[in-house]
């Protein structure tokens, strides 16, 4: 289960552990369920607890970004480790997904 909280009109989802292809499948399902339930105007993905991420994590973020965009919502990420941020930059995600504190 993903930790999450409401913050104004935003839904904050805290990811934890290793975000690889194996874990991405579960994280994707959980996030989609939360988005479906909460219908947030804004989704903030807190990466603080992510100890490892590869390009499968990028796939998860892009997928949720698309879901949000379809419903007119926005998405942001926060608390990326230098490692996670490098992959984020490499994929060009910083051009479409906002980084917040």
């Amino acid at each position: 289960m993903l930790k999450h909280r409401k913050q104004g009109d935003a839904l904050v989802v805290c990811l934890e552990g290793e975000l690889d292809h194996h874990c991405a499948q579960i994280v994707r399902q959980e996030m989609d369920r939360l988005i479906e339930e909460e219908r947030p105007q804004r989704l903030i993905v807190d990466m603080q607890g992510v100890s490892f991420m590869d390009s499968s994590g990028i796939g998860v973020l892009i997928g949720r970004y698309r879901t949000l965009s379809r419903c007119g919502g926005r998405m942001a990420v926060c608390n990326m480790s230098p490692h996670v941020e490098r992959i984020f930059q490499l994929s060009g995600l910083q051009r479409i997904i906002e980084k917040v504190r």
Binding site: A24, R28, D54, S55, S56, I58, G59, L90, S91
Partner: peptide
């Protein structure tokens, strides 16, 4: 459709 980002080889190269 499986949300593969297509970045695997780019990550390896980098």
């Amino acid at each position: 459709e499986m949300e593969r980002s297509g970045m695997g080889f780019s990550v390896m190269q980098t």
